[in-house]
Each structure stands twice: as structure tokens, then as C-alpha cells.
Nucleic acid binder design. Structure first.
Lengths: 216, 216
DNA sequence: TCGAAAGTAAGACTTTAGTCTAATAGACGA
DNA sequence: TCGTCTATTAGACTAAAGTCTTACTTTCGA
């Protein structure tokens, strides 16, 4: 019996994935989550053999979400499901520890192949990207490691920093005192090897796959 | 008699462009510049009919450089010469006012075609990108307009801000007092419709085509 | 040619960022 | 089970960011 967790915010696409998986694979147990918090909670309470993760979930913050999950559950294999076709982005996804990349346009049999391969311990990528996936540069994987070493609170603070919020506003959003926010900020700086918030924002935006939405 | 300005930091590529242009076109006068400052100075002192601009010149800051030139010399047609093949980036280049995009891999005849077309007032793009160039979204072109409205000093300050420098360090680099830097910073915020430096850095990094180099 | 508008520059002041010290609570290995 | 390590929290303090006001200069159109 194999347990799979489908993490995607679109109910229709979850249905499609569920259909593709249950018709191609036997003896599987399917779980679902619609946002990052639900994904984390499900992983905490279940023994999941493979996570199928959509990067564009609410609260996920793209690559941050993947880093977050990889840090909290390093033993859970992750296959990223996304609509992007950019080899550079896929390189980054693989570079931070995803064992596979499944395009949203993949067929049922491709998806089943990918899941089987990853469960066997292999890395699976669409054939179209053979040879197009580069090693991510050392700089990037070092940054990714450093960001992954952040605690959940620090991670949330960094997300809010990247949105241009003041410490006071971050504290209000997280329901903690401004002084606590500052302590997190200082800890983030030390872990990332920097000394001001501008540099932190640059690192955060480098790890972001999509340009930030509107400036508030 | 048509005056062309070749702005590229690689002497060899300038030679190649010069060769391609002088063998394909008659009655042309060729000027050259190796960095953004020299480009600006040449445009100030000459009546240039077309600028062939490499985005990766020293001091150019990629899209910033193009915005800068477009703002200072809105009447000079610009064709961007670059090695990138990413349709999204090319869309942005065209979206901020370039009349053409010439890949570094283009043949002599392609280059001559492009130059002729742009001098006739047309927009020229490589055939490979037909249909792949999207309209840039309203948000982006609004930001580009706002950034283009910055004065040269404000532009330099924003560049240094994006590199994570303190106001004091920016003042030292530009040889002005910290108080002056602050005045520029406040003016930048007003023009961009924001109220802190984090948001300014985000906008600047969105307009950057390449990820920032190392974090200092 | 003269005044209006805008870029540049800077001092004084308020707000926010960031550091240092320290206390509490939970996790983990000996 | 005990001690150690670390995350989290927070107060007090210093450094930097950001605002307001003012002044000098250049440019441009009436």
C-alpha cells in the first residue's frame, strides 16, 4: 500500500491527478491538500510515500514552499507539478531537492511513469527536457540551503519582508510583538550571511519563481 | 548619410557588427561606445539615426540602461542586441520601447534587414519569435514608465539601493552627502508610489534581467 | 529677460531598523 | 532523568532610514 499526497489548489486538477493515478497504479492511498498549511499538517499526521506538489498554492510562495517542505520533511520524496516550461526554473526546482518535475500538460501514462520512477528512487523529468537541465550554480544552492535552514517563524518573517512590510506590520500579521520580529530578522541575517533587510529581500526575490504581484 | 551608434563592451563583437553593417549598407557613418556613459555622451554630441545597444554593458544594469537611454533620448530609435533567447525578456525589451531585437547569433543579412526595417520606422524581430512576443502587462509598463521618469541621479541611487548599500555608502560612492542621498530616495519613493526601500529594491530587481550577482 | 518649475543639495528632526542582553520553553542525546 | 542546545520571546539601546523645510541652480517658455 502506497500513500500519495496531492497538494494543489485547483479542485479540478486534483480530480484529474487522482483519476490518472488511480487508473494507472494499484494499491494506492490518496490524500489531498489545497494549500501549504494543509500540506504540512497532512505530512505531519500521515506516512506519505510521495508528495505531488503544485508550486503555485496559496501561502506556498513558489520555491519557498518547496524549500520549506524539504526542510520539514527531508525524507518525503517530492515531485513538483507545475505549468512552467522554463528549463532554468525546472533546474532550480531539481536543484533544491525535488525528485521529479511533472508538467501540467503531462499525459496519464507519463504521470504514472513519473510516480513509479520516483517511488523506485529515481529522478524523473519529461523527455523534452533531456539535456536542458543544468546544474544550478554553487551560489544558488548555497542560498537555497541557507534559506532552508530558517525556522518556520523566520521563514514567515522573511516572506513578509519580501512583501515590503515594516517590522510592526509583520508583528501584527503574525500576532507577535515587534521586538520578536526584530529578533527573527537578526537571526535571518546571520543565517543568510548578510546584514540588512535589502539584501534579504534580494535573496528572497531570487528564490521566487514568479515576479511579486502588485506592490502594496 | 545615416549615422549608427554601436554600443557594446566587447571590441570583437563591435568589429563583427561593423563588418556586417558596412558590407550590407551604403552611406553609413558608424560610431562606437563601450559603456553606458560613453553611449550617452555620444548621443548628446551626435545626431544618431539608430542605436544598436547591448544590454550587458558596464554600468548599464540591463533593462535600466535601456530605460535610461529611452528617457534621455526618446527620439533615437533603439535596437537591442543581446544573447538572450527568452521570449519573456524580449517582450519586456520591446515593451519598454526598443524598436527591434537582434540576437547575437543573427547573420549579417538579418542584421542588415533589421537595421533597414527599423530605419523605415518598422519594428523588427527574429522570425523565430513570431507569435511568442506577448504584450507586457499593464503593471510592468507602468513600473517601467515610473522608473524611466527618474532623473540620472535618482537612477544611480536606485541602482546602489538595489545592491544593498546604505545611504552613507551610496553618498560616498557618488561623492555627495548622505542628506542628499536621502532626498533622492524620498523623490524615488514618490515617483514609484511607494514608501520604503524594500519596495524600491523589489521594483528594481523586477526590471533586472539577470539575477543580481553575489550578495556583498 | 524674467519668473516658474524642477533637479540638486543639505540640516534638523521623527520613525524604523538592527544589536545586545537575557529569560522562558521545548527537543534531544548521554 | 538531567543537562544542553536552540527557538522563541522581549526590553533597552544605537544606527540607519525617512520626512520636512529651506536654499541654490538650471532650464524653459511667456
Amino acid at each position: 500500500m502506497i500513500t500519495l499526497l496531492i497538494a494543489d489548489d485547483h479542485p479540478l486538477y486534483r480530480d484529474a491527478l487522482r483519476g490518472a493515478l488511480s487508473s494507472s497504479l494499484t494499491d494506492i492511498h490518496l490524500l489531498e491538500a489545497a494549500d501549504l498549511a494543509a500540506t504540512v499538517e497532512t505530512l505531519e499526521h500521515n506516512d506519505v510515500d510521495l508528495l505531488l506538489l503544485d508550486l503555485h498554492m496559496p501561502g506556498s510562495q513558489d520555491l519557498f514552499g518547496l524549500l520549506h517542505i524539504r526542510k520539514l520533511f527531508p525524507d518525503v520524496p517530492v515531485a513538483v507539478v507545475s505549468g512552467t516550461e522554463d528549463p532554468l526554473i525546472i533546474s532550480k526546482i531539481v536543484g533544491v531537492g525535488a525528485l521529479g518535475f511533472i508538467p501540467k500538460t503531462a499525459s496519464s501514462s507519463d504521470i504514472a511513469d513519473a510516480v513509479s520512477a520516483i517511488l523506485d528512487g529515481d529522478v524523473w523529468l519529461p523527455e523534452a527536457f533531456d539535456g536542458k537541465i543544468e546544474e544550478v550554480d554553487e551560489e544558488f544552492s548555497k542560498l537555497a540551503d541557507q534559506v532552508a535552514s530558517l525556522t518556520p517563524s523566520q521563514y514567515k518573517v522573511l516572506c513578509y519582508m519580501r512583501d515590503g512590510l515594516l517590522n510592526k506590520q509583520i508583528g501584527y500579521n503574525l500576532d507577535i510583538a515587534e521586538a520578536t520580529v526584530k529578533a527573527h530578522v537578526t537571526a535571518i541575517f546571520k543565517k543568510l550571511g548578510i546584514n540588512n533587510r535589502t539584501q534579504a529581500v534580494l535573496i528572497a526575490s531570487q528564490l521566487e519563481l514568479e515576479p511579486p504581484a502588485a506592490i502594496h
